[in-house]
Write a protein that binds this DNA or RNA. Structure first.
Lengths: 70, 70
DNA sequence: TTTATATGTAAAACATATTTTACTTATTAT
DNA sequence: ATAATAAGTAAAATATGTTTTACATATAAA
């Protein structure tokens, strides 16, 4: 699932490390999610949306044909 | 994290089994999530929101003080 | 009141998300 | 050009989410 974390993070002039601290995960987690290694947990998605001043639905680009994925 | 899946599912007169099939998970997964055993993955949260005609943010009740949870 | 459908629950196996540690490359500032 | 900060990546360990199988209870229909 695509997301606009990197773009929105840069708008707010935050480093991966700073966003990691704000959401209480490691920098590697932020990096992996920005680079589509895996999707975050639901609660981390909410924290990211909150810190980036948006909603989960706006931050993540869910496509109908992702129906088969977990 | 609380959610309003059961309530919204009943509005649409769907059984847990039917919602499970629509979102391509097992009935036990729906049951566990409705009864707050664990939170769904992000992609399942999107599928549930979609089938229940709502958004992830509206379906799940994220609270700021859940900051410490994963 | 028996039968069918729906819901609650549990353990083991399996899949995915996150941390930790560590090293590398890229970008920015001095 | 060197130093500092930021970003990309990876393997192993741990945590969490999902399936499978199975059984129990509750609710609705015949």
């Amino acid at each position: 699932m695509k997301n606009s974390i990197k773009r929105r993070r840069k708008v707010l002039k935050l480093s991966q490390e700073e966003l990691a601290q704000l959401t209480k995960v490691t920098r590697q987690t932020i990096n992996a999610i920005e680079n589509d290694k895996y999707d975050p947990s639901l609660i981390l998605a909410f924290k990211l949306a909150h810190q980036l001043h948006t909603t989960v639905n706006a931050l993540f680009d869910y496509q109908e044909n992702e129906e088969d994925l977990k």
